[in-house]
Design a protein around this nucleic acid. Sequence first.
DNA 1: GATGAATGAGCTTTCATTCAT
DNA 2: GATGAATGAAAGCTCATTCAT
Lengths: 199, 199, 199, 199
Amino acid sequence: MTSADPAVAGRPLRADARRNRARVLEVAQQVFAEEGLAVPIDEIARRAGVGVGTVYRHFPTKDALFEAIIVERLRGVGEAAHELAQGPDAGRGFFAFFELMVRDASLNKALFDALAASGSFNQELTSEARQVMMTGLGELLAKAQEAGEVRADLTAADVKTFMVGCLAMARQGTADPGLIVGVVCDGMRPVSPVRTPEG
Amino acid sequence: MTSADPAVAGRPLRADARRNRARVLEVAQQVFAEEGLAVPIDEIARRAGVGVGTVYRHFPTKDALFEAIIVERLRGVGEAAHELAQGPDAGRGFFAFFELMVRDASLNKALFDALAASGSFNQELTSEARQVMMTGLGELLAKAQEAGEVRADLTAADVKTFMVGCLAMARQGTADPGLIVGVVCDGMRPVSPVRTPEG
Amino acid sequence: MTSADPAVAGRPLRADARRNRARVLEVAQQVFAEEGLAVPIDEIARRAGVGVGTVYRHFPTKDALFEAIIVERLRGVGEAAHELAQGPDAGRGFFAFFELMVRDASLNKALFDALAASGSFNQELTSEARQVMMTGLGELLAKAQEAGEVRADLTAADVKTFMVGCLAMARQGTADPGLIVGVVCDGMRPVSPVRTPEG
Amino acid sequence: MTSADPAVAGRPLRADARRNRARVLEVAQQVFAEEGLAVPIDEIARRAGVGVGTVYRHFPTKDALFEAIIVERLRGVGEAAHELAQGPDAGRGFFAFFELMVRDASLNKALFDALAASGSFNQELTSEARQVMMTGLGELLAKAQEAGEVRADLTAADVKTFMVGCLAMARQGTADPGLIVGVVCDGMRPVSPVRTPEG
DNA sequence: GATGAATGAGCTTTCATTCAT
DNA sequence: GATGAATGAAAGCTCATTCAT
C-alpha cells in the first residue's frame, strides 16, 4: 500500500520513476477502459513502453494497479460531487452528477469490471476512495433531497447503485446514454401524486 | 426448457443423461450466479458430482454452457412477457415484468457477465433466445405505450437495456431490488408536466 | 486377443455381431486410410452407425482395431506375393508386387502411420500377419533372385523396408507413384558392370 | 542458426535467454528425434530444466518449436547441397548428398514426422527453409543430370520425395542405411539399355 | 530503478476406455 | 450384445508474479 502510492508515503520518486508511474497509470486506464480487466499486464507494460518489472515496482499487484485507477476515478467523482453540493441548485447539481459518470465512456469498462468484480474488491481495496466518493455523494444527495428534488427514501448507497447501473447500461451501447440518465434520474425524483393514481 | 436439449432436438436423452444435464445446468447456474464466468469448468463438474467430460458432452464449450443458462433465462423472460401482453392491463403487466427479472437473484451475476461479455457472445450465440425475448418484450411494450403507461419514445432495445441495468444493480446487493425496480419503472413512465416545471 | 478375432477362437459370432464387426472394420479402414491414426474412435463408431461400446466389444483397444486392419492388409499382401511366386516369371512378378502396394492409395496413410508408429507396434502386435507376409515375400524374392532379376544381397526385410519407403513416398503426393516404384525397383535390380564403370 | 532468433531479428537475446533457448532447442531436437512429435512440451521443458513458460516464450507454439528444428536441419541440408554442387564431380556429390540425410540418425524421426505431417505444416511453415533446401538441391541435381549421372526425368521434388523415403526407411531400422541409399541411388541413375532388355 | 526472462499453477478441451442401461 | 453417457488423465497454452541481470 505504502509502496503503491509513494506520494502518500516517504520520499518523493525519482523523476523517471514518477514519469513511468504516470505513464503506466495512463496507459492502464485506457487499456482497462477499452478491454476490461482481462488484458494481461505484459500488454500494459508493452504499451507503456516499460518492462513488466516496472509496472510491478509501482503496483505490487494487478489488482493494485486496477484499484489505483478506480481510486483516482472515484476520488474525482467524489470531489465533483462535493463541489456540486456547494452550488446553489443542489437538485440540478445532483442530476448533473449522473451525467458525469456516464459521459466518461472511456472508463466504463474498467469501472464496470471493478464493480462487477467478485467479492473482495469492492469491500476492502477501494475503501479509501469509496469514502471520499460516498461522502461527497451523500452531501449532494442530502441537499437535493432537502430541496425536494430527489426521493427522500434514497440513500447514498442506493444512488451509487444507480450509478453503477447506468454505467452498465451505457456500456451496453444499446441505448442512448442521455436517455438512460434521463430515465433513471426521472425515477429518482419524488413520486408525484399524479403519477400513481391507483396507489 | 425442454427445447434446450442436446443437439437442438434429436432423440430424448437417456434418463441418467438427462439427470446429469439438468444437474450440471443447475449447478452451473448457481455457481455462475455466485462467482461469475471466472469459475473453472472443473469446479462446476466437481460440484455437480460428475467428470469434466460429462460437462463437455452436454455443452461442447464453456461458453455453450453459459449460453444455455442465459438462453433458458431469456426464453423464460420472453414467454412471461408474451403472457403478460395478453392480459387486460398491459401497463401493470409491463411493470410487473421488470420485477420478474430482478427477483431471480440467483441468475444475476451470470446474466450480468453474459451481457457485459465482450462482443461475439451477445450478437450471435443468444440470438435465438433473444428473438423470443425481444418479440415478447416488444409486444408488451407496445401495448403499455398505447395505454399511455410508458414513455412513447422508448424502444424495446431501450427497455432491454434497462433490464440489464436493473440486473446489474440488483447484483450489487447494495440496494433493495424493489426500490431499484420502482425507480427505474417510474423513470420509464411518461413524464408528467408537473414533473419538470422548468423543462 | 481371442475376443478380437473370434473366427480364430470359440463359437461363431451372431449374425448381427458379425455384420457389425465387418462394418466397423470397413469403416475404420477407410477412415484410418483417409485421416490416419489420429481419428477418434467415436468418429469411427459414428460413421459405422454403431455405438463406441460395440467397437470396443470387437476390438479391445484402438491399437487392436488398427492392427486388425493392418493385419488384414498384410495378409492380403502376403498372399498376393505367394501367388506371384508361383507364376512363371518371378522377376516380373516381384516388381509387379511393388506396384500393388503403392497403388492401393486408400491404405497408405494407415500403413504409413502403422509403420511410423513408435516402437512396440511393429515388433509384437502384427507378428502373425507379418509372418504371412514375410513368408510370401521371401518366397517371391528368392525366386526373383534365382532368376537374376534382383540383387542377391537383399533380404526380405530389406524389401519390406523398401515397400514402406515407397508407401511413405507415395503418401507425400509429391512424385508420381509410377516413378517412385520405377526408381526403387531399378535400384533393386542387380548392379550391371556397365553401371559403375569406376567401381 | 543465428537467424533463427527470437522475432526473426530484434536485439540479441540476453545471455541466459540465449542459453535457455539453445538448451531447449537441443533437448527438443533430441527428444523429438527419439520420440517424435508426440512428446509433450512439458516433458521437453522438464528435460531442458526450464519451465513450460520458457519454452513458450521462445517458441510460441509447439509447431513453432518443431519447425525451428526442421528449419535448422533443412537449412544445413540445403547448404551442403549447394557446396557439393560447386565441386568438380556433381554426380558423386549428388549421391553423397543422400548419405548426408540418412546418416544423421538423430533427426530422422523428427524430419520424418515433419515431412509426413498432415498438410499445413509442409506447405507454409517451413517454406523459407524449404526454399534454401530446394534451391541447393535443384542446383546439384541439374549438374548431376548434365553429367549424365542422374536420370534426366527427375525433378528436385522427386528427389526430395526420395530423400523422405530414405529417411522413412532408415527410421525403420530394418535395413542397413548404406544399402537403402545404395539402392535408391542406383535407381536414380540413368537406365542403361542393358538393364531393361525387354523394354 | 528498470528490465524482461523465467516460472508454474491453472485453464479449456480432447479422447481412449469403462460400465450402467 | 448393443448403446452411448461418464470418466479423467493428459495436452497445449496463458499470464500473474518473481528475480537475475
